[in-house]
Amino acid sequence: MKREGNLFEYDADMTLKNKFLFGFLLLHLGVISIISFDIERNIPHPLLQVIKWYSTATVLQAKYGFFSPNVSSDPSVQILVYDSKNKVHPFHLPAANHEIALRLHTSYSAFALASDAQDLIARSWAAMAWEKYPDAKRIIINAYSYQLPTMEQYVKGVKPSYYRYYQTTFETN
């Protein structure tokens, strides 16, 4: 390696330090590839745990199948606060900008998948609504999945709709 002079000239006479660096990064890519190419089923369980931990620590998400195999339905959440006169106040989780709103949507997707934890998460959202409306008598949380018709159905007049897959109510005494 020529370190001075022509910046673009390369001579593969690698230093020991860089041989270690190259070896480590190749190993790193190998580990990531096991998750990325979905070949983990061939790996024994204890080693797979280590591989998963390593890939989460270094690249977070090594499975890169964004929007695959299909584009899932858009999830949404509605929080309705009822006051003592039974007047309804829609409550929106605060999001100062578009990017924060995107992250909230990501959490709605996680909510849809975490069926065991939905009641706990809904309780958390209700607590936030209660903070804003301390006099609330009832809070209803609905979670919906957006039903977009196919292009063919849409042309024939089928309209998009929402399918409610979760509802819970919190009441004060």
């Binding site: 190419f37 199948g65 964004f66 695959s68 299909n70």
Partner: peptide
């Protein structure tokens, strides 16, 4: 690896072949 695996994963769904994926996205 990123692009190739995401492309292969998409190929497994019918929406990316019939155009519904773009419509839905």
């Amino acid at each position: 690896i990123v692009y190739c695996t995401t492309g292969i994963a998409k190929m497994g769904g019918d929406q990316w072949w019939n155009g519904e994926a773009t419509w839905r996205a």
